[in-house]
Design a protein around this nucleic acid. Structure first.
Lengths: 203, 203
DNA sequence: TCCATATGTAAGTATTTACTCACTTATATG
DNA sequence: CATATAAGTGAGTAAATACTTACATATGGA
């Protein structure tokens, strides 16, 4: 048989995490009950607590999963292209992940979860810090290669890139995915790279 | 006496709304109970339901309050300075409002609230659309005056400005207000206006 | 001053929901 | 095959919480 009646705790755990990701895609994590998870997985309510001691533990596992996928995405950069291309790649990788896991923003940004689960709050901060580091080093490389302006502040520019990324994700999230997130993020980044002020005039 | 034992429903309503704003500043709106609101206002639990029929009605009122304050901020622009200055003003006004009402992002972005209360979801979309319109017209004015590049796409650029704004608010929110939001937003906008790509090189 | 009314209270109720427990049975292993 | 173990079940519990209701009284207007 393809689906035995009983599965290893490892398998069930990942099924439960998947269920949490799927269910929080449209409702946000705060609304999800352990009973809803059980139904989604196809087991009884009690079975959930064979695999996770508390609901909070489930959310921790969900966060771990997401964090791992994010970092994997960052580290799949090709060494070949220019720093600017690598910046684009990083942003695109992140956006593709959001499209693949639409629950991602609602979990990362959920004040509710962060309040109940201080570990997640700290984890999100640490994740963002690491992402900031990755972006920063590409920006530094861009300056060194001459692709980016030499007079910019590197960490500040990294914050700008991240703000554009997250702001665009937020709009996509609020509009319920009404546009192509990856393409839109690319446009936003291009526009910010070149700037929209008219420099020729001020001389 | 300054505080009579009973107040008009109008006064109590606004006290309840204020309590909701204050309490959701750090926890997010999903966690707030009607009992917590009652305690904060200093009345019994039952008294809350004299003034609002349901909890959802409270959140509607909270959203109305926020929306009104936002729009007031946009319409207080001085006609005098340049379009670029007016853009800055709009962004700063929005950021100042967030600093004044730290619960604002958690209410505007709360998936939980939006799910339970379709009116708020729609209201947020409409608000964002109007803000996009206001920003767009300043950008158009900037193009007309020659301050901004003539070849940019206006609505797209407005989306960029909003993404920068919201992305910065998000970071401020996650870091629990560890930096000066208004100053930081200003920096981000300046950097995006001028761009960070090196143009001199590519000729 | 007196009354009608709206504001307030305290003690409920019904429902939801995280978690438990006694018991069952599939399954891997010797 | 026999058995220990771990996965699963279903009924139950305690706590939280939105909302109700019967009753009390402050307050403004006649």
């Amino acid at each position: 048989m393809d689906s035995p009646k009983r599965k290893s705790t490892q398998e069930r755990k990942s099924e439960i995490v998947d269920a949490a990701l799927n269910l929080s895609a449209d409702a946000g994590p705060g609304q999800i009950t352990t009973e809803a998870l059980a139904k989604r997985v196809g087991v009884s309510h009690g079975a959930i607590f064979r695999h996770f001691p508390t609901k909070a533990a489930i959310w921790n596992a969900v966060f771990e999963t997401i964090a791992k996928k994010m970092e994997q995405g960052w580290h799949r950069i090709k060494p070949s292209p220019s720093p600017c291309e690598r910046l684009r790649f990083l942003v695109r990788a992140q956006l593709r992940l959001v499209v693949a896991i639409p629950a991602l923003p609602s979990i990362i940004f959920s004040r509710e979860l962060h309040k109940k689960n201080a570990g997640i709050q700290k984890g999100v901060l640490a994740l963002m810090k690491r992402f900031h580091g990755v972006i920063s080093s590409e920006i530094q490389a861009g300056i060194d290669s001459g692709e980016l302006r030499a007079d910019i502040d590197v960490p500040e520019t990294a914050n700008l890139v991240i703000a554009i990324l997250q702001g665009t994700v937020l709009r996509w999230s609020v509009t319920q995915g009404k546009f192509d997130l990856v393409a839109e993020g690319d446009k936003m980044l291009t526009l910010a790279l070149s700037g929209f002020q008219n420099h020729k005039m001020n001389k």
